[in-house]
Nucleic acid binder design. Structure first.
Length: 865
DNA sequence: GCACGCACGC
DNA sequence: GACGTACGTGCGTGCG
């Protein structure tokens, strides 16, 4: 694939000069046009990745067009000196990047571009210019990027876009258009009184300038007179506008070849021009443009593989494995790599391998692999998972193949560099793809050993082998099963909400005295705090805060506020849930979320596309969303069961605080009990306010919030919040001791651990920055609690899965929401299911207080309350 | 495409 | 005194 990028040097430099404010370097040279041009250059190199690259300039003032028409480009403002002096620097920049600079005596840049664009060595040509004349060069291979207002913003003009813009005209008719309407800037006359509208109409009727003059008899009145009187001008204008595609430019295709640029040549030039911000871009561009040194890979045939210990890697362009196709398959072992497509999977060798539990297949992401294989009718039995194993090491910089590789000093090319990113993501050429897949598969093989060794070092092998690894297939089954959605319920809600939102909107606009976008905090801020002059309670980085807690304070001051709050509530439901969920219902009538097992800092799962871990429950209106979640078969029901106070039970176990242990051992209401202690009253005398405040304190402990956070939650002063905390610690000295010890452990080891040895590094514990250190200390306390809760429910999931497998029940685990599991099953199984699930959840681990799991059945998720 | 403000859950 | 405050995902806006 040869891809030629052609820049109109004059046009782009000119445009940059007028678009940017004046800039100079240390020696006083003007640099704004150079700067703008360079920004454009960097962006194009990054986005377009051409194989060939040239910039064309106008050579001299005189061209062959002046021979035809002496006044060509006459009356033009003289190029200002501040701009003229920048052209040589622009050339210098191009040369430093290794881009071919072209110019030709007697011809304009347009003609050079035109000639090169028609060379048949290129599969694809992109021209970048601000000059619409060049649009005439568009064809099925040639695309023009027209610069828009800014510097780096362009409009893509291909055949379709051109037709759209010019009322069905062909790009070649651009010259006829110019012939009729002329061009002020080039002093091309055209026909007086004919503008774009008239010219388009005439061309649609007669096809060309010549066509028009063959039919002037059909014209009438003034128009006829003007057209007839200006035949010479029209034909001359067309001639002038015609770009020559056969000029004698002597340049080899090889001379246009574009290679990764040499930073050592560009950087000094940038330094002297004082392009500091662009130097930063240079380095990242360099990474992307410069191909990483290729790793030696030995390609072998499948039947030469050693599958006793081998990697299976299935590549996708994007992460959604329910939607994305496999774009390639790589199998790697110590014997070498085999690369191919999905057909590799259908071979007997592979089928046998995947079905053999003793030969654990090493995956980068086993859940992705399992689902992709399932989509292809295949089953993976025994697996390892590099990302899951790497996650447990809590390496800095997230859990990706890249970050794990970087940690073990293994370099490999980045996906974004090979596939492109965003809208430009694409399958590369076959040999590029195969090399990339081979390198990744080899990296997975070698990194897995390193990570496994590190797990042994950390005493985390059991955490991996007995918890996280088996959880992968449990999650895969849950995702694959999906949860059924009654779309009609959502449609009905959409209708209802739509009407109410509209009403609220007009009421709000009425009260504001004008229409505005309520969803724009910026516009809302202007209405509330300027027009209505309400007192701004809080500010954000960018302006007034209009967050819910602010609105609550403003509610008594103006009737518009409660409507806005209501509007927000309904708008959120509508866009995120009612509309959002319908968008992700698959053909089977179900939603298949994807859980991420390797993301959170605490060991919890997260859920995406959609997130089923934040379906509304607190407000009744939102809770109704849950009516749309139903069992997938007639005669089946949902069963939702959640751990009661699991974090506080863990807290009591870990801290061994007597009062807390006692409360749980006597199965007391923990918030009432906490309130009785903190407020020093009998349990019977605890008021609802006391209980609410005690609950907030308990909540604060679980989530590791600060006195400030607590004060915000309770709407009290920071001092009062601190008093609450002090009294709490007085009453629960074991908790205080536990917290101090957690911080001490973090200081000593640099990390904290959960009961099952999940680890979180806390480097900021030694920070001299008060905020960072405070945050680190709360993390040291909170992570062992929240993380242990995550350990426990994960273990319960594995136990429940195992128990269901060995039972005769048909019921299935569908969802996990941090401390809650949701199942579906036949009504006849409810009793057995409840017994099995409660047993597994409550006894998956032995604490010094009992674990309690409470559940209920319902036709919909809403009804399981 | 990205940062931000906002809002939902645990 | 420190000025920012658990863990996530997703929506809409507004900017380059």
């Amino acid at each position: 694939m040869n891809k030629l990028l052609l820049l109109d040097g004059n046009s782009l430099t000119y445009r940059a000069f007028f678009a940017l404010p004046p800039m100079t370097d240390a020696s006083g040279r003007n640099t704004n046009a150079v700067y703008g041009f360079t920004m454009m250059l960097l962006k194009l190199m990054e986005d377009e990745r051409p194989t060939h690259f040239a910039v064309a300039f106008d050579a001299s003032k005189k061209t062959f067009r002046h021979d035809t028409y002496a006044d060509y480009k006459g009356g033009r403002e003289k190029t200002p000196g501040e701009l003229r002096e920048q052209f040589p620097i622009v050339r210098e920049i191009c040369e430093a990047f290794g881009i071919q600079v072209l110019e030709l005596d007697n011809y304009e840049a347009d003609d050079i571009i035109g000639t090169l664009s028609k060379r048949d060595e290129f599969d694809n040509v992109t021209i970048v210019t601000g000059d619409k004349d060049l649009l005439q060069l568009i064809d099925d291979r040639v695309t023009v990027y027209l610069t828009k207002r800014g510097i780096t913003d362009v409009e893509t003009m291909d055949e379709t876009a051109f037709k759209e813009r010019y009322d069905g005209l062909n790009p070649r008719q651009m010259i006829d258009l110019k012939g009729l309407m002329g061009d002020k800037s080039d002093n091309i006359p055209g026909i007086p009184g004919v503008g774009e509208k008239t010219a388009l109409k005439l061309l649609n009727a007669y096809g060309s300038v010549e066509g028009l003059y063959a039919h002037t008899a059909e014209l009438k009145g003034k128009q006829k007179e003007k057209v007839e009187a200006n035949e010479h001008e029209a034909k001359l204008s067309k001639q002038l506008a015609t770009i020559h595609t056969d000029v004698p430019i002597e340049v080899d295709v090889d001379q246009l070849a574009f290679h990764p640029y040499d930073v050592s040549k560009v950087k000094p030039l940038f330094m002297s021009l004082q392009f500091k911000s662009l130097i930063g871009k240079l380095q990242t561009d360099e990474d992307a443009v410069e191909p990483a040194p290729r790793q030696e890979v030995t390609h072998i045939e499948l039947d030469a593989q050693d599958l006793s210990r081998a990697v299976l890697f299935l590549e996708q362009l994007r992460e959604d494995y329910f939607e994305e196709p496999m774009i390639g398959v790589a199998i790697a072992s110590s014997a070498g790599v085999t690369v191919g497509d999905a057909s590799l999977l259908k071979t007997d060798i592979v089928k046998e391998w995947l079905a053999d539990e003793a030969r654990r297949t090493i995956c980068l992401d086993a859940k992705q692999t399992i689902i992709q294989l399932k989509r292809n009718g295949l089953t993976l039995v025994g697996y390892e998972d590099l990302l899951v194993a790497g996650y447990l090491l809590n390496l800095s910089g997230g859990t990706t193949l890249d970050s794990i590789a970087a940690h073990f000093e293994h370099t490999l090319p980045e996906d974004d560099a090979v596939y492109g990113k965003g809208a430009k993501r694409h399958i590369p050429e076959r040999d590029v793809l195969e090399q990339h897949l081979a390198e990744k598969a080899m990296a997975i093989l070698s990194l897995f050993d390193h990570v496994a060794a590190a797990l042994v070092e950390n005493e985390q092998t059991s955490l991996y082998e007995d918890l996280e690894r088996p959880l992968v297939s449990v999650l895969a089954e849950m995702e694959w099963a999906g949860i059924h959605i009654d779309v009609a319920t959502l449609q009905a809600m959409e209708q209802d909400l739509g009407g109410r939102i509209e009403q609220l909107e007009s009421e709000i606009h009425h009260l504001a005295g004008e229409a505005f976008n309520i969803n724009s905090p910026k516009q809302l801020g202007v209405i509330l705090f300027e027009k209505l002059a309400l007192p701004p309670v809080k500010k954000t980085k960018t302006g007034y805060s209009t967050a819910a807690d602010v609105l609550e304070k403003l509610a008594p001051l103006h009737p518009i506020i409660e409507h806005i709050m209501h509007y927000r509530e309904l708008g959120k439901l509508q866009s995120t849930y009612v509309e959002g969920l319908q968008k992700v219902v698959k053909e089977d009538g179900k939603i298949h979320t994807r859980y991420t097992q390797t993301l959170t800092q605490t060991g919890r799962l997260s859920s995406v596309n959609p997130n089923l871990q934040n379906i509304p429950i607190r407000l009744e209106e939102g809770r109704r969303i849950r009516k749309a979640f139903t069992a997938s078969e007639p005669g089946w029901v949902l069963y939702a069961v959640d751990y009661s106070q699991i974090e506080l039970r863990i807290m009591s176990h870990m801290s061994q605080d007597e009062k807390m242990l006692d409360a749980f051992l006597h199965d007391e209401d923990i918030h009432t009990s906490t309130a009785a202690n903190v407020f020093k009253v009998a349990k019977e005398d605890v008021t609802s306010l006391m209980r609410r405040q005690a609950k907030a304190v308990n909540f604060g402990i679980i989530y590791g919030i600060s006195d400030y956070g607590l004060s915000q939650n309770l709407g009290i002063s920071r001092k009062e919040a601190q008093t609450f905390i002090d009294t709490y610690f007085e009453q629960f000295p074991g908790v205080k001791r536990f917290m101090d010890e957690a911080i001490e452990r973090a200081r000593e080891h640099g990390y904290v651990e959960t009961m099952l040895k999940r680890r979180r590094n806390i480097p900021d514990i030694h920070s001299r920055n008060f905020n960072l250190r405070g945050f680190a200390e709360r993390t040291a306390i909170n992570t062992p609690i929240q993380g242990t809760a995550a350990d426990i429910i994960k273990k319960a999931m594995i136990d429940v899965d195992q128990a269901l497998r060995t039972s005769t029940l048909q019921s299935k685990l569908l969802l996990q929401v941090h401390d809650e599991l949701i199942f579906e099953g036949p009504k006849e199984e409810t009793e057995a299911l409840e017994k099995l699930v409660k047993q597994a959840m409550e006894h998956t681990i032995q604490l010094d207080v009992p674990l309690r799991a409470d559940g209920s059945f319902g036709e919909t998720w809403f009804d399981t309350k």
